[in-house]
Measured scan of single mutants.
Amino acid sequence: KELVLVLYDYQEKSPRELTVKKGDILTLLNSTNKDWWKIEVNGRQGFVPAAYLKKL
């Protein structure tokens, strides 16, 4: 499993997105899109802007 660090808080703006908090370490599911990465948070899957995340 690949992990990502959340660099900035992000509030979901659609049902396909997820809310994340700065400092969270989460599972990366897909990073093929350069702008939006798919991650998992508490069993939910969704997208967060790639600029808000850093691969560990």
Rank of each mutant, 00 (worst) to 15 (best):
N30C: 07
N42T: 06
G43R: 06
Q11C: 07
R44Y: 10
L53Q: 01
Y10K: 00
K34C: 08
L56A: 05
K13E: 08
A51Q: 13
D35C: 07
V48Q: 00
K34A: 13
K34F: 08
P49V: 02
K21L: 09
E40G: 10
E12F: 09
K13W: 03
D24C: 05
G23R: 02
R16Q: 15
W36A: 03
L7A: 03
V4K: 00
L53D: 00
G23S: 03
W37K: 01
V6S: 02
A51S: 14
V4D: 00
L26M: 10
G46W: 04
S14C: 05
Y8V: 10
N30D: 13
K1N: 12
K13V: 08
Y52V: 15
E12K: 14
L7M: 14
K21N: 10
N33K: 07
Q45L: 10
D35L: 11
K13L: 12
T32I: 10
D35S: 12
F47K: 03
D9V: 02
E17C: 05
N33L: 09
R44K: 14
G43D: 08
S31K: 07
N30G: 08
K54W: 10
E17Y: 05
V20I: 10
V48K: 00
K13H: 10
L28K: 01
A51F: 15
L53F: 04
K34V: 10
V41I: 12
T32V: 11
V6R: 00
A50L: 02
P49Q: 03
A50V: 08
K54I: 15
N30P: 04
L18I: 11
E17D: 06
V41M: 11
R44S: 10
F47T: 03
L26T: 07
L56H: 06
E17A: 07
R44E: 12
V4P: 00
L7D: 01
L53I: 04
K38T: 12
N33G: 11
N42I: 05
L5E: 14
K21C: 07
E2D: 12
Y52K: 05
E40N: 04
G23W: 05
K34S: 12
S14Y: 13
L53H: 00
D9W: 02
T27C: 07
V4T: 02
A50K: 08
T32G: 10
P49L: 03
F47R: 04
N33F: 08
E2C: 07
K22L: 05
Q11K: 15
L56V: 11
I39E: 00
Q11E: 13
V20M: 06
L18K: 04
K21T: 11
D35T: 10
Y8W: 13
K38F: 15
G43I: 02
V41H: 15
Y8G: 08
Y10R: 02
E2K: 09
K22M: 08
P49M: 03
A51T: 10
N30K: 07
T19Q: 06
K22E: 09
N30H: 10
Q45V: 15
K13S: 14
V6P: 00
N33P: 04
Q11H: 12
K38Y: 15
A51H: 14
Q11R: 10
V41K: 13
Q45G: 12
E17M: 05
R16H: 12
K21S: 12
V48H: 01
R16E: 12
K54F: 09
A50S: 15
F47E: 05
T27P: 14
K55Y: 12
Q45C: 08
S14K: 09
I39H: 00
S31A: 14
E12L: 12
R44L: 12
G46P: 01
E40Y: 05
V20L: 07
D9E: 05
W36G: 03
K34Y: 09
K21P: 01
N30T: 09
K55F: 08
G23K: 02
A51G: 13
L29Q: 04
R44W: 06
L7W: 02
T32A: 13
W37E: 00
L53E: 00
E40R: 05
W36N: 03
L5T: 06
